[in-house]
Each structure stands twice: as structure tokens, then as C-alpha cells.
């Protein structure tokens, strides 16, 4: 379900933890191009290989990031919940999702049009840099998670 305004049950995109401390002008721009989306349990939010056209900011619910390989069942490599964000494939060419994301329970999110957001960030490098500084810890945590999985620290 999509709704064309970035405020859900009184929760505004500007209240989302990810955009806190982002420049106000950038948050205002993001709010203008954001819609709210709802996903049922089991519904795919993102599908690997498809064009990455949105940046999702999770308001409530829980989402599993899944990888699929031909010879084994789908594997959840991370879950994302309220206050977290989903997807940065829209920032890097060729702008296709690299994972599936599936709702583990009813999930609500703000969806920001990523083509337009990328244009904003390109046109205003200062804002673009601030945005990347906010996104970098998310990417770093994903990498750290991957390190743990590679090290198999709990299994050794």
C-alpha cells in the first residue's frame, strides 16, 4: 500500500532516527519525495536483480535480508527493524538490488524516490557528503556482521 505523504500516524519522516541531524533542507527535500508503504508478513520489499528505485526508512516491523543460491535454501543474513534503513544499491551503478528483503511481520516504512534523491545528493555535494556520513555506519555494521559470519565465531 502506498500513500503520497510522508507522515504516518503522526510520525513524520523528519522524526526517523536516520535523518536526525541531517541538514534541514535535505530532510525537507526527502520528505517531498517520500511516500509511506506498508508490507504484509512474507511480502517482498526488494527483489534481487530488480532496479533499485527507493530508499526505505523502516518505521515499524521487521525485515529479513535474504540471499538465494541455487543449491541451498534462502538464508537470512541480517534483520532490519524500526529506526533502521534498507537498501543502498540505488547509490551505486547499475542501481539493481543485490539482495531480497522480506517482511517478517507487518512492516511500515517511508519510501524515498531514490532516482530523485540521488539527483539531490549530486547537485548539492555538501548535503551528499552529510548523507553518506549517515549511511556509512549502516554499511560498516553490515560489513562487521559479514566478518562475524565469515569468522564463524559462535561455531568455532
Amino acid at each position: 500500500m502506498n500513500r503520497n505523504h510522508a507522515s504516518r500516524d503522526g510520525v513524520r519522516l523528519a522524526d526517523h532516527p536516520f535523518v536526525k541531524d541531517l541538514p534541514a533542507a535535505l530532510v525537507a527535500s526527502m520528505s517531498r519525495i517520500a511516500v509511506e508503504r506498508s508490507f504484509e508478513t512474507g511480502e517482498l520489499l526488494l527483489r534481487e536483480g530488480e532496479p533499485a528505485r527507493e530508499f526505505l526508512l523502516i518505521v515499524d516491523g521487521k525485515v529479513a535480508l535474504e540471499v538465494a543460491t541455487p543449491e541451498r535454501p534462502r538464508l537470512t543474513i541480517q534483520t532490519v527493524g524500526p529506526g533502521e534503513v534498507l537498501g543502498w544499491s540505488w547509490l551505486t551503478f547499475p542501481y539493481h538490488w543485490r539482495l531480497d528483503a522480506r517482511a517478517l511481520k507487518p512492516t511500515h516504512a517511508f519510501s524515498v524516490d531514490s532516482d530523485r534523491l540521488r539527483t539531490f545528493l549530486n547537485e548539492d555535494p555538501a548535503n551528499g557528503f552529510q548523507f553518506l556520513l549517515h549511511l556509512l555506519p549502516v554499511i560498516a555494521q553490515r560489513l562487521e556482521n559479514t566478518q562475524f559470519q565469515l569468522l564463524d565465531v559462535h561455531g568455532s
Partner: peptide, 19 residues
Amino acid sequence: TTVDTAGRDWYGDVGLVTA
């Protein structure tokens, strides 16, 4: 509770304890 990886039958958290 959180785990490093899980199959589709797990509805709990996946990721680091620090998360």
C-alpha cells in the same frame, strides 16, 4: 536473541549482539 544466519523459518533477529 539474535543469530548469525537463519533460514526462512526463523522470525527472530539476525545480526550482531551489538545491534
